[in-house]
Design a protein around this nucleic acid. Structure first.
Lengths: 123, 123
DNA sequence: TTATTATTTAAGCAATTTATTAAATATAAA
DNA sequence: TTTATATTTAATAAATTGCTTAAATAATAA
């Protein structure tokens, strides 16, 4: 495992830096998966969609569009992105599609939702 | 609080939708702050920087550039973005700037870091 | 079949992101 | 003062994001 040192300050501990590099590389899978979740949730609209699905169990695109006062295509495209990432699933009932959280993939979101609620207090 | 209903399906419970809208609006401050954190952390490079700062307590831009094998300006611009958001701080020691996490603002990240580490197992 | 409703998809576009390269600061050393 | 090192800033440019509008599906109702 190579480590190109560009910084010449004495304090730079090459062993420390190499160790950091190894750790980051070993956790590559974790970083990839977590970045996927956070980049999905790191958008105002999508975070609200995820929160709402957690709160209401399932909602159709139309409900979400009404609640967030946004257009259907805008919501639909966010839903598609979240679904492609595997964090929500849909079931059809007639013309209506119901979206819901894939619980096994979204455990970390519970911490985030709780935190959002607690941030209210300090407002 | 108005609610424009665009969906005509019978199951759509207007009270439920209005309640959702109220909840989302009441938590506006929480959503804003959480979106800020998640949009910062929802980038591969920045998530790794935050993880490294948590692991090593403080690092200079040069260390981070070496570890992640990226250019100094690229790292510097990520650091600036994280710092502008208030999640890291810096102290100067001669020519070197040391960056570290602002603990009070990054508690939620601990859950995320733990999760990254545990995702390794299932790889 | 035709019309209506729920939803998605596609095309286009403005705004944002993230890297690169080159130039500017800031501190320390010769 | 001149030079070197650590870092930031600025100017681009390519890629991505997230909306809009219009068209395409899919299921239901008339």
């Amino acid at each position: 495992m190579k480590l190109e040192i560009t910084c010449t300050r004495a304090e730079a501990n090459h062993t420390q830096l190499l160790n950091c590099q190894t750790t980051i590389q070993n956790l590559d899978n974790g970083f990839q998966q977590m970045t996927k979740l956070l980049s999905i949730a790191g958008n105002d609209v999508r975070l609200k969609i995820l929160f709402l699905l957690n709160m209401e169990n399932e909602l159709c695109p139309c409900d979400i569009a009404d609640i967030l006062e946004m257009s259907m295509p805008a919501i639909s495209q966010h839903l598609r992105k979240i679904k492609d990432a595997g964090f929500i699933a849909s079931r059809r009932e007639g013309q209506t599609l119901y979206y819901s959280l894939v619980k096994s993939e979204t455990q970390i979101l519970n911490t985030i939702f709780t935190s959002i609620e607690s941030l209210k207090k300090s407002a």
